[in-house]
Write a protein that binds this DNA or RNA. Sequence first.
DNA 1: TTGTACGCGTTATCAT
DNA 2: ATGATAACGCGTACAA
Lengths: 344, 344
Amino acid sequence: MKFEPVTIKDIAAKLNLSTSTVSRALRGSWEISNKTKKLVLEYAEKINYRPNPIALSLKERRSHSIGIVVPEIANHFFSQAINGIESIAYNRGYHVSISQSHESTEREMVNIQHMASRSIDGLLVSISAETENLKHLQDLHEKGLPIVFFDRIAPEINTYKVVADNYKGAYDATVHLINEGYKNIAHITSSPHLFITQKRLEGYKKALEDHQIPYDPKLVEYCNYGGMVVDEVELAIKNLFKNKKKPDAIIGGGDRITSVIFLLLKNQKKGGLKIGYIGFSNSDLTDMFSPSLSVVRQPAFEMGVAATELLIKLIESKRPITEFETIVLDTQLIEKESSKKRIE
Amino acid sequence: MKFEPVTIKDIAAKLNLSTSTVSRALRGSWEISNKTKKLVLEYAEKINYRPNPIALSLKERRSHSIGIVVPEIANHFFSQAINGIESIAYNRGYHVSISQSHESTEREMVNIQHMASRSIDGLLVSISAETENLKHLQDLHEKGLPIVFFDRIAPEINTYKVVADNYKGAYDATVHLINEGYKNIAHITSSPHLFITQKRLEGYKKALEDHQIPYDPKLVEYCNYGGMVVDEVELAIKNLFKNKKKPDAIIGGGDRITSVIFLLLKNQKKGGLKIGYIGFSNSDLTDMFSPSLSVVRQPAFEMGVAATELLIKLIESKRPITEFETIVLDTQLIEKESSKKRIE
DNA sequence: TTGTACGCGTTATCAT
DNA sequence: ATGATAACGCGTACAA
């Protein structure tokens, strides 16, 4: 048996009416007799008629659905952001289509291309760590596809953006570690061409500077695949400990990197973490680590909400919008055990 | 500026051809002159023509996309399963549309209804903990919509199903705890009307029976919202400790419940976990807990793969399929510290 | 080899 | 108050 939903035509045939009459009845038009309207409505209800959204999309030239492109959904930051996105989209009558780049530029391009081929009205994007060249997005944007970036934004594309205050997040984390008495604070972060990476680095540097600690580039390591590849994180840690000045504390960037670093540090030394540690993470499981993990938390849900509101504004706007803002939401420093000064 | 992709019509007009000729050229038909074909292909390439998938869907009466309905993507079991689903769907030319029920029957129904309204060719479903009545799915299935269940299956609907061996998983976990010397093993699990819950309970009971330990219903607590509501888990634990025979070990069911129990147990008693604990979890973070968590791991990725292969088989089958199998994949017991016998 | 006409499901417009 | 027709983008059976 094939899946053959009823159409307006079926109803029309059954009731000896024209499709237009049925359509009008269904849409509650008043220029129609109450009798016919009732007849149609009752029959439609009975056979459980549902309008075909594909036909509607073709006609209206919009799909009432928005696409999300994120690196990874198995990541609490992104899954929380998606929950925020959904919460708004649903209420506004939009369906949401999620896709993952797995931090690969190629997958990202394919996904975006697929979505952009007119099955979506707009795009919410957080670019992959691997992506350097944004031509594919730039093109779509110029052709008029509404795009809003969140978290992993593309500075060179002129549209709405929503980010956490990564500068402040990193600044706070660094100051916190300094206050706890750490001297050689390292930073293991994501790909250097990501805007968030740069902002975090700036915050980190500024905090050092404000406390008269010289900045040492050797204490900063980058993970080009955002921690998706364990080896790159392992190498980063190894490099840090090769330095003459061994780090006594580390700041980790991003959910994934943060937990991988933790795992590696723990495996490295028996008897628990020996150095101070704090990471950017939205996982709700870090409290259960041992030592419990101090984190910089980003307002993921709220970022999703804000981005979606902007996107829908863009989609539904009658006239072209040319003035764009970037919304910056506050981060939150949560102090637990891992960053406390410990006796050596 | 509006987003107005080029159509076959635009190409035809530009090249002074009919739309059918252009269509044929694009589809590589051989009943066409090489000259025209080349001309069209080159121009199409130049202006970056993409066929409109909505129009195609309307015509072919299929969308080449499949819908996923899961309780929650912020859950490693499901996000891993989704990765498995994507890996297959992608290669077979299907787009994937994800939606979450958040363990609510109502959300689930809305999502399924939305997807089923012909924007998808088939459905992969893992039902919510709250859902008891499956009429909405039953109806769609009877109308011929291809559906495959994975993990949270509906036994009464006759179609393909993919599950982990929850019976064995629970059996193994229970035996392991017994072997470690625990006597009063409790089980905090999901909603009692979920099939997986029942299977796990059976495995748990059988293990007790095989070791001459009487089954005590007071040692089993259910969480109807699958751990989404912390209070229900808190209550479950409270109830267990109200018993005369206080539990000396607990088996947790499901990613979410497992971590919430852990958190609550840890907060409850200062100085670490006092009782034996093991849970069903696919999180990659449980190793970092303290004590590190013993878990029953489900082959989430493989389940996603298997379910998708079956669904596509169902979708693409010429004649109706009436014989359905249920694929059962093995679980894995990973012994860490939390389940080791500890001195009291 | 190329063009014309139709249909997929729906609604807007223009008749009746 | 209701019906007929065109249009959205595409592919194809049929006509030329």
